[in-house]
Each structure stands twice: as C-alpha cells, then as structure tokens.
Design a protein around this nucleic acid. Structure first.
Lengths: 335, 335
DNA sequence: GCGTGACGTCGAAGCGCTTCGACGGGGGAA
DNA sequence: TTCCCCCGTCGAAGCGCTTCGACGTCACGC
C-alpha cells in the first residue's frame, strides 16, 4: 500500500504538504501542487479511508435507510436510492445501506461508531419511533416524509396538498365542474403518514375555491371495492365528469369499472391520478398523473444533508412542487 | 465521545484489555470481562469505526454494486440487496451501495481506499469490463452471474441448465411428450450473459434424455412477436401440449395468444416459466414457475465473501438448485 | 530601510483503536 | 520441590492521515 509519506518522499515535500495539496485547506504553490499530483498519479496513491476518518473526524459516508414494509412501491424506492447515491458521489460521499429492519439500533450504531456523517431516512411515519433518536443524535439527518411533529428535524417530500390542488386545477382547466376523489383505504387516513389527508385537503380546497362540486371517497385496495365506489360516485354525482384517484392499487380496476358502467375515458370521464409514471404509462388508458419525484427528492435530500454538514442552515420543511403529466385519460368536458 | 481509554479507566483495566474483552482474541477472565462489559454499557461506549479500520486494517464494510440498465427486474434486485444487507449484518458487516454507473473506477476507489473489505457485484455480463479489475484487486469479491471466463473469480447464480431441465422434467412427469421452449430475444443469446443458453441446453438435454419431442424458439419481447411464435409453435408441432417460457416480458401476451388460438390452459396446454414468483402469481392464469432465488443468492454471496475474508477456500462456482413452484398453468396431459 | 503580513512549507502531535511482546503468578509435570 | 508453560493482563508502538503552530521568504507600505 502506498501512503502519504511515500508520495511526500517521491515529490520531495513533507506529508502535510501533500495533505494540503489534496484538500486545498492551505495555499500550495502551483509547482509544488503539480509535483505532488504527478507523484500521486505515478504511485497510484489513494488515501486510506479509515485513517482519514480517524484524523478528520469525517467518514464521508451517508447512511440511507430504505423501507421494507408491504405496500411500498419498490421501483420508486430504487429510483430514489440511485438518485441519493449519485448525488452523494457528486459531493464526494458514499452511501451505506440500512434496512428498516435494523430499526433504531441500526441508526444509533452507525451514528455512534462514526461510521457515517449523516443519515437519510425514508418512509417516515406520522409517529415514527425513530424520531426521538434522530433528534438526539449528534449527526444531521434528513427525513423523507413528514411526521406529526417535525420540530427539530429536516423533512422533505412531495407537496401532497399542492398535488391535490393541481389535479383539481387541471380538471377545472378542461371545463369539468363536478368531480370526485377516490382515495386510499380508510386506515391510511388515520395511521401512518399524513400525505393522504393532505391530498384531500388540497382537493377540497381547490374545488371550493374554483366553485366546483366535489366529493371524497376513501376506498379499499380491492377490485370489488373499486367497482362499488365507482357505482356510488355516479349515483351520488350523476353529473360527474372528473375523477382524481389516489390509490395506485386499484387504478386499473377503477378504469375497468367506469368503462363497464358505460363511461368512455376520457370522452365521458376524465381521470387523473397520483401514482408512479411507470404505472400511469402502462395502463390500458395512459393516465394523466402526478408522480412522486423520487429523483428530485433524493437529490434534494442529499443537498440538504450537505448543507447541514457544513453548518449552513436549511429549511425544516421542504415541499416539492408537484408536476402533472397530461396523458390520454383527461380531455375537455364534452357535455 | 466516550473512548476505549474511558472504559478502561472506569473498569480499572488497561485499554488493551478492553480491546481483547471485546474481540475475544486473547483470553480474559470472566470477572474482568464482566466488569468491562458493565462499564461499556454504563458509559455507552461504541468503538470508533475509523480508528478500528485503521488499526485493524478491516473496515467491516462490503461493497455491493447494483445494476441500473434497462431490462432488469427491480423488485428482484431489491430483494437481493435486502438479503445481502441482512446477511452481512449477521456477520457484523455493513454494506456500501454502489451504482453500476460508477463502473470500474468506483470499485477501484472503494477497494484502494480500504473503504470496504470485499465486494459483491451483481449483473455480471459475459465479457464484463470489470473482470480484469476484480481479478487484480487485493480484496475478495463475489460475482452474481457467470462471465465467459470465470477463472480466478468466485461466482454464484441459479443453475439455469438445471432450471431448464427441471421444467422439462415437470412437464414429462405430467405426461407431456411434445414440448417447446419460448426463449428470450435472439440478441440475448449472443450478448450479455450465458444464462439463456444454459436454459436451452438444459431444456434440450432433458427432452432428449426423456425421449420427448422438442423445439426452441427465441422470441422478441413484444406482444406481436408473442402471437407469431405461438402460432408457429402450433403449426410446427401440432401435438404440442407443453411449453416452457423464458421471457418474462411476454408471459401475459403468450397466454393470451394461446387462448386466442383456442387452447385452454392448462387443459389443452401446460405452461411453465422462468420468472419471478411475483409475476407468476399475478398473471390471469397463475403460472408454474422457477424463480431466481434472490434471497438465497444474496445470503450465499455474503457467506462466500465471509469465507474468503477469513481465508477459507471457496468453490469458484456456486450453482443454486432451481425450485419449481407448481401453479394452475400445468396439468396432466389429457389427450 | 524596516516592520508587517501573507504565502508556502515543515514538523510534530494526535485521532482511537489493535496488536505485539513482555511479565507476574499459579498449576501441572517431573 | 523445581521448572515450565499457560493464563490473564499491561504498556507501548504503531495504523495513515489531518491539523496546528511555527518558520523562512518575499513584497509592500511607510
């Protein structure tokens, strides 16, 4: 193994000079720097990560906790993870992968052993048991998702309220006046995270603001429930021409159900959904949708962390603007 | 930060004794060990990862390179990754996540900086550019998949030849005598990896051994190609009653195609596939299938690496026995 | 012409841990 | 009883790097 003293000897300087040439923390003359760099290249020198971490008290590694529980969309998680790794590398950091299974102990371990400098935690629940720990840890962290009480934490997520609004505005812009929201299973609205409520808030607020007639229907994630809710929607709002769906699992069953009820999409009924683009694109009718911008979330999460690492203050909450992709499922109102 | 000297003082022993109590590398009396452990607990001591890595020349971190290219099945990769992390933790190791995008330079970096002790590389291609590097690196590695020349490497994968055989044997056991293999797109057989050929070899060999009539048909991953190949199969082998499919993308189109041709599954035609269980289960007709045992591959890969890390010799090639899950798409021959 | 910085470099101290050699004491073999 | 060896523990020497203080040199301003 070639070490910094080898480089120093080869370049005819002291080890500290090599270090400074590498880090730029002190001015080094152009010639010296060039000589050092040449030696580094010639000898194939790579600083030892452990030694560096010990001396500098920085490991240049981030921890990323990925969720495992059922119901998460794996490709979305993966996209996010890749984006985190890529962005971290741009900032000269590596990423340690933790499973949610490891829980609080895992977080504490990697933080307390100084294995990582900072942490990214995905899939944060409303009353996540990890919150007290994350607040107490001596290393910065960023959470994906908003807990009930984000005080003292840094959180980032899609602005679900704005997403709900955007769906409504899109439908309103196409002339629709009577709309419905088909949501997630009822339990999602009480447990877990708050994003489902936020969508409803945005939906309702925008509909009211735009003078539209609207209803909200939670729905179980089964095809049977999808059929039922579709029927009920039409019964309760016969003039319905627009629907917002926030329930990936039954997107396809819902489309089927509406078509079996004699509604053509988008001629008779416009549909817009909150779901991954991948899903929206591959449905029998490509659906106008808002996706969680996983790439952007990952990037921003790393940027937030980097700021915290060099003591730049960051906003406690970062809400990402939703972007709606228009597809074949929405059209101007015809009736 | 509480360090080993703090623990030593608190327990009334020397730092080296604490170290030995922790590592077990030298005998320590029960009482001393107990006292040390109590102090550790009381003070909340955690050894500094960097210091440990520097002094012991072991980081207790593995690198895992995950593939990004199109065509990989993301949930399978994720399952595998989770299994690697979980197994690594059981061996007191953590996992650093690298994207394939980082390429050879990424591997060299984490290895040369001693950030990781060993590497797991997924999605290894026949002539993978990383092979020479992996051979030259001073750290052990395990590859998922077999390159053209595995000499000097440690590889693990599903035994695709045995998988091909197992499909045939399953069909033979049900009385089928005339079978076909619908394979991957032609280019898969020349480029990339060798697993597609292996399936064909197993299929052909088993069919010959069992005195069955068989044909092999590569097939593009498009619904149109699926229809064409289905028709051709029936034209060329009118007595066909069993089909093996090694092409996840067109499983569903193929089922449709056969049914449109008037064949009921499994009454008239038995289908067995190589595909993830998740897919096999959710098709209109649940398909008898062999899945890549991602969980087991991950576990074994880590075990292999651990053996290499403590200089236990390991087999150069590990082929995992295929396991076939019978579902609704196969039945005894009726005609 | 001399003080004053800023620049560029060096040497040494340490980061927190592991590990090696050494050493005292006790038990078993001779 | 004596010798030897092993057990349990200690002290010290690093592991390879960063960083702090120091120092010489040069240019500039007064």
């Amino acid at each position: 193994m070639v070490k910094i003293t080898d480089v120093a000897r080869h370049a005819g300087v002291s080890p500290s000079t090599v270090s400074y040439a590498l880090s730029g923390k002190r001015p080094i003359s152009a010639e010296t720097r060039a000589r050092v760099e040449a030696s580094i290249r010639e000898l194939g020198y790579r600083p030892h990560a452990g030694a560096r971490a010990l001396a500098s008290n920085k490991s240049n590694v981030l921890a990323m906790v990925v969720p495992l529980r059922a119901g998460i969309n794996v490709p979305v998680v993966m996209q996010f993870a890749v984006s985190v790794v890529t962005t971290a590398r741009e900032h000269d950091h590596d990423v340690l992968l933790l499973t949610q299974e490891e829980g609080e102990e895992g977080l504490r371990r990697v933080a307390d052993t100084a294995l990582v400098d900072a942490l990214i935690v995905m899939d944060v629940q409303l009353h996540d048991p990890r919150l007290p720990l994350l607040r107490a840890l001596d290393r910065p962290s960023v959470l994906i998702g908003f807990p009930a009480d984000p005080a003292g934490l840094t959180c980032i997520d899609l602005d679900f309220k704005a997403a709900g609004e955007l769906c409504v505005e899109h439908l309103a812009g196409l002339g629709h006046r009577v709309i419905g929201l088909i949501g997630s299973p009822p339990e999602v609205y009480v447990r877990q995270t708050a994003f489902a409520q936020r969508v409803v808030q945005g939906f309702t607020a925008a509909a009211a603001r735009l003078g539209m007639s609207s209803t909200v229907h939670p729905c179980e994630a089964t095809p049977a429930a999808a059929r039922t809710v579709a029927e009920r929607l039409l019964r309760e709002q016969p003039a319905l021409t627009g629907v917002v769906i926030h329930n990936e699992a039954i997107l396809e069953p819902l489309i089927d159900a509406f078509e079996h009820l004699g509604l053509r999409i988008p001629t008779d009924l416009s549909l817009t959904a909150l779901c991954p683009d991948e899903l929206a694109e591959t449905l029998p009718v490509p659906v106008t949708s808002i996706a969680i911008p996983s790439r952007e979330v990952g990037e921003q999460a790393v940027h937030l962390l980097m700021s915290k690492l060099d003591n730049t203050p960051v906003p406690s909450a970062t809400l990402l603007r939703p972007r709606l992709t228009a597809r074949a499922s929405t059209a101007p109102r015809t009736m």
